[in-house]
Simulated scan of single mutants.
Amino acid sequence: MTSAAPQPRCRLLTDTAVVDLARAGTIVLDSWHLYDGAGVAVDRHRERFTAHVREVFEIGEEESGSAYDHALAHLPVEGSWFPAFVWTTDGLRLLVRPFPVEQLRQSTTLLLLPTRDARKRPDIKGFDFLSQIYAHRQATEAGYDDQVLATAGGSLSETVFATLILARQGELVVPHAPRLDSVTLAVLRERAGRPVRVAPVTASHLLTAPAIFILSALHGVRVVERVNDTSYQPNPQLREALQTALEGARRPIADLLPGGEPPCASC
């Protein structure tokens, strides 16, 4: 009895790191935490990603959306993962990276420097990835987890890889500045049960805030324990409430997959 011939590897799958794809040319990126086959608001990630691909590469949302759905079908259904959907000049590439749950963080430290955000398109995820890697390296080499970015006028926008939120007087304040349209923030706006206000945020606002959080599609909600030499009193109860609200939007990827025949002969 002969064994079946091995199936060819799907062309969307890659082992090339995101930073190397960015070095090769312009990219648009999407990534989020996949846990046991489920993700938070993945439909919104898909919508943002296809809109950015259309703007940067002039590729229709039907084409990029079909590729995204095809990539979703290749994701693991068990375990903790951090998939990266990367649109390149050669189309979509999917990098599936393991991310053990014990590496998920509930707190963080931030570096704040008097330098201007070097990104050209902070509103498009991945467009300035190499600049972000440089800024993140500045933070880690100084002993911090991430860096706060600021405009030329001194307004703060976000961190290198996360949305910045100040908690004060019963509301959440998000900086009014060029930044990524965060899917995680959009979910919390609907589910957090408290007002979310957009307003200018300066270094002074940040350093005198009662509590600070950052949001990302990988770690969710993290408490900021320190900015430069300023320490903050953690608010784990609020962090837990926000994280619980966020987890309420986690849905199985299988619910998003279109039916029908496999989209390519490799699958």
Rank of each mutant, 00 (worst) to 15 (best):
Leu112Pro: 03
Ala186Cys: 01
Leu95Ser: 05
Gly91Asp: 05
Arg251Gln: 13
Leu164Glu: 11
Asp229Ile: 08
Ser107Lys: 09
Val221Tyr: 00
Val77Glu: 15
Tyr35His: 13
Leu257Gln: 09
Arg93Ala: 12
Arg44Phe: 07
Val160Ala: 11
Leu257Lys: 05
Met1Gln: 10
Gln106Tyr: 06
His136Cys: 02
Gly154Val: 00
Gly154Ala: 05
Asp117Leu: 04
Gln147Arg: 13
Thr163Ser: 15
Gly153Phe: 09
Pro178Lys: 01
Arg116Cys: 12
Glu247Thr: 06
Ala254Thr: 13
Leu156Ser: 07
Ala139Glu: 09
Pro83Phe: 03
Arg194Ile: 15
Leu172Phe: 04
Val18Asn: 04
Leu207Asn: 12
Pro236Thr: 07
Thr109Ile: 07
Ser155Gly: 08
Glu171Ile: 01
Leu92Arg: 09
Ala118Lys: 06
Ser182Pro: 03
Leu238Lys: 04
Thr2Asp: 11
Ala17Ile: 00
Arg97Asn: 13
Thr159Ile: 03
Ser216Trp: 02
Ala84Leu: 08
Gly25Arg: 03
Leu207Tyr: 04
Asn228Pro: 14
Tyr134Arg: 14
Thr140Arg: 14
Ala51Lys: 08
Thr151Ile: 06
Arg179Asn: 10
Ala265Asn: 07
Leu111Glu: 11
Leu110Val: 12
Ala5His: 09
Arg194Thr: 12
Ala152Leu: 12
Arg250Cys: 03
Glu158Ile: 02
Leu256Gln: 09
Leu207Arg: 11
Gly154Thr: 02
Ala192Asn: 08
Leu185Phe: 05
Ala199Val: 05
Leu112Asp: 06
Val101Pro: 06
Gln243Pro: 02
Ala241Val: 08
Ile133Ser: 12
Gln147Asp: 00
Leu257Arg: 10
Glu261Leu: 13
Ser64Asn: 01
Leu34Phe: 02
Leu12Asp: 02
Ser204Met: 11
Glu78Cys: 01
Cys264Tyr: 03
Lys125Asp: 07
Thr184Pro: 14
Pro252Ile: 02
Leu215Ser: 02
Tyr232Cys: 06
Glu225Gln: 11
Asp229Tyr: 03
Ala24Tyr: 01
Asp20Val: 00
Ala118Asp: 04
Leu218Ile: 10
Ala4Asp: 12
Asp90Ile: 09
Thr115Leu: 14
Ser3His: 07
Leu13Gly: 08
Ser231Asp: 13
Thr202Tyr: 03
Arg250Phe: 03
Ser131Ile: 08
Asp145Asn: 13
Glu102Val: 10
Asn235Pro: 00
Ala139Ile: 03
Gly39Pro: 01
Ala203Asp: 14
Phe85Arg: 01
Ala4Met: 12
Arg23Glu: 14
Gly126Val: 01
Leu180Gly: 02
Arg121Ile: 06
Lys125Val: 07
Gln132His: 10
Ser80Pro: 15
Val96Met: 08
Val101Lys: 07
Pro6Trp: 05
Phe161Trp: 14
His219Ala: 04
His136Gln: 13
Leu21Lys: 04
Thr88Asn: 10
Val86Arg: 03
Val40Asn: 00
Gly91Met: 10
Arg189Asn: 10
Leu256Ser: 06
Glu171Cys: 13
Gln237Lys: 10
Trp32Glu: 10
Val196Leu: 11
Gln169Val: 01
